[in-house]
Design a protein around this nucleic acid. Structure first.
Lengths: 246, 246
DNA sequence: CGCTGGCTTGATAAAGTTCAAACGGGGTGG
DNA sequence: CCACCCCGTTTGAACTTTATCAAGCCAGCG
């Protein structure tokens, strides 16, 4: 992984590319002050408690947002490079969830004040960031439907379909092959089940020839049947139209 | 219910009161063109398919947002008067969910173009509406955690706590008594369970002295124990501080 | 070589679903 | 005014899915 020390905003701007930000905005974004921090896996991303003062961008690695109940964890979002997991803190500074790395990861932190200033100067950027938060909410809704109405296999299948398309959109997956750094207990906590049951369902999926999964790499063996098993409709991801190809 | 024919924006502005919109903005909002429509219960709120061109405001009654899977429904949001269920359509015009009235209801519809114009003129209004969509997402997260990690009683208890506070905030509930127009099958579809099971759990809650529920009216008999059973933390609703009183 | 973290297996229990039928109250039409 | 019907609720019994508990496995690493 020849990780060249590039501008931390490359990945964000790539993510926002479909919005066709004007050059002026792109340049202004690049001038934002970003504090980059590196994390180990399973490390909490803490803002020293209290109201948030920064937003973060995932540069590399995967990050999960979660809520805790007595002894139980629910992962409410999984973020990949280019994502902005806590943009909501701009207007809801009191966080309602925690963030945790799922892998080795690096993140950039940008003060709210600077983002606000930029939005004031470029209202279009505000709209683009607003849209980002709406996409997160759309994914939340799809997850709710999975948690409420899909069985174990459907939930796993749906998550794999979603993550494949999201990774593919940023160039981190291709040819039905993708990284899958999540542990079985992460999958369990994202899908509202136990590790044991996830393990058994994964075996079912392998036996059914839907997927191959080993060494942190997931291969989708039969996209059509996986989509069918998931009752997956990519609409909610609002990706560029070329997804229709699949 | 002496339903005076008042300005459709009263309820919205009341909802947004904590934001302290300047008078100029309030007046501009009131001048927005609003088409008011009345609905029967269980009626779909259709935008004639295709991309949305309007946003709606719930004026009276309750409205649910839902996603369908083969033969199964998941309610992903419940909206009460003053709520704006599809603000997200401003930036994600392709809807990823349907809307359905849960009661007799009336709604106001406002063209995107007019809202966009107003946001351009008053960026502060844009921020306030953005925040509204973030609140919806925060509620989504709380629901996910319930769907994934709470048992039947916890889910019902949590929903009742949430709805009580939301209704109380707009003056539609008081003294631990609130309207509960949702049918048991609505509760089931919101909480990812079956009507039969919801029915049995409701009986448990009554027997435990947590609630009284009859004639579409819910009385919370023991707020403290209901909160405990729900593991309810009102933070995510971002209501005014006086909620701390409870 | 022995630990550790994550994966796998088995047996048992609990929570929730399914199917089917009955109940009950409010509204309607004869 | 009564009978009926409809919609939502309630009940029962059998069944599935998923959780729980506990132990074993296995590969990579220090």
């Amino acid at each position: 992984m020849g990780e060249e020390h590039s501008d931390p905003f490359d990945i964000l701007l790539r993510r926002l590319e479909p919005a066709h930000l004007p050059d002026a905005v792109r340049h202004a974004v690049r001038k934002l002050p970003a504090a980059v921090r590196d994390f180990r896996p399973n490390q909490d991303v803490v803002h020293e408690g209290g109201p948030s003062t920064h937003c973060c961008i995932v540069l590399t690695g995967w990050v999960g947002c979660y809520q805790m109940l007595e002894g139980r964890r629910q992962i409410v979002a999984i973020h990949i490079p280019g994502d902005t997991p806590d943009l909501q803190s701009l207007h809801l500074p009191e966080p309602d969830f925690g963030m945790q790395t799922m892998t080795v990861a690096s993140m950039a932190f940008i003060p709210h004040t600077d983002i606000q200033r930029l939005i004031a100067a470029f209202p279009f950027l505000g709209a683009v960031l607003w849209r980002e938060t709406l996409l997160v909410a759309a994914i939340h809704r799809a997850w709710m439907t999975g948690l409420g109405r899909r069985n174990s296999l459907g939930r796993l299948a749906h998550l794999f379909c979603e993550l494949y398309l999201r990774l593919e959109a940023i160039g981190l997956a291709d040819a039905y092959s993708m990284p899958m750094p999540l542990r079985q207990y992460d999958l369990a906590d994202a899908l509202g089940q136990t590790t044991v049951h996830i393990n058994r369902t994964l075996q079912d999926m392998r036996r059914a020839g839907l997927i191959e999964l080993e060494g942190r790499q997931l291969m989708i063996k039969d996209w059509q049947r996986l989509v069918a098993a998931a009752e997956f409709n990519p609409l909610y991801l609002h990706l560029s139209p070329k997804v229709a190809e699949l």
